[in-house]
Design a protein around this nucleic acid. Structure first.
Lengths: 143, 143
DNA sequence: GTTTAAAAGTGGTGTATAGTGGTAGTAATA
DNA sequence: TATTACTACCACTATACACCACTTTTAAAC
């Protein structure tokens, strides 16, 4: 179960550190791909396979499903860590997430999310939850 | 069932004591996360796992669910006790709770709450209830 | 009430490692 | 063959962690 937040940066060779606590939950390699809401997802190999399994059961006759498959799979990259625990982010993914220099890496249950610091901190980022909404959500899901 | 209140402090390495009576109810590790009303929650591993289990069943297609997962996981830290029974509070959580030096730690049923002493004692802390309001609230829930 | 002992809490120091930057080597392309 | 891009490796620094020593509080016995 991935959790916690880290603030790091990407260097001019497009290398990013996967924070050691999160890295411990991945094996020798991982899958990096486009996520929802302008961030990137990192999956374990096993979890990726499960996701693919799920997706393969969706009806391909639906254009939206086809678009989703493209979004999700076409840009997936299998990444290996270097000795310092870094992976290389492909140009396409870097651009999609609006990454320039600063990153926010956070555990999100079964996967890891990678955000551009600017995008994450942006006022129009609706993925950040305010406290009251959180309280409501907690109540809604009976916590 | 956690109960009782303790007054302690955090040192310059962001370490806080979990009072021994409360600590006894946690295992070797615990989960520290953002709570409501500007305090932090400490959960047992078991309790946390149960909540995660629940959350994992929610539909990720809903943006609100995604935001909820982010808020819930990104602000959570798995903590281990050192030989003195201390845990380290991540910067982010320390800032959220407005913790500088003095702490209030209290048992609150299934979880433990950690407050900044200043925030807890503050006149605009609405979590402290006057006796009459308390009675009214109880009546409302037909207690 | 005083003394003693044990447990709980606080503070500091040294070492390992996570994270960052850079360099050299290899492969691909022109 | 020369140039560029990519990959793997190496070295340094700052931080975090684990350990140790001390103080304070609590409890108990005399």
């Amino acid at each position: 179960m991935f959790m916690g937040t880290s603030y790091n940066s990407i260097d001019d060779k497009n290398r990013m550190i996967v924070p050691s606590k999160l890295r411990a939950g991945l094996g020798a390699r991982c899958i990096l791909t486009k996520g929802l809401d302008r961030c990137l997802y990192i999956y374990t190999s096993d979890d990726w396979d499960k996701q693919m399994e799920k997706i393969s059961r969706l009806p391909e006759s639906d254009p939206k499903v086809r678009a989703f498959i493209r979004h999700f799979c076409a840009n997936a990259a299998e990444c290996e860590f270097d000795k310092q625990g870094r992976i290389v982010i492909p140009q396409e993914l870097k651009a999609y997430a609006g990454i320039e220099k600063d990153l926010v890496t956070m555990g999100a249950m079964s996967k890891i999310e990678v955000w551009s610091r600017e995008v994450w901190d942006s006022p129009d980022n609706e993925s950040k939850m305010e406290n009251e909404d959180f309280a409501k959500a907690l109540a809604e899901y009976s916590f």
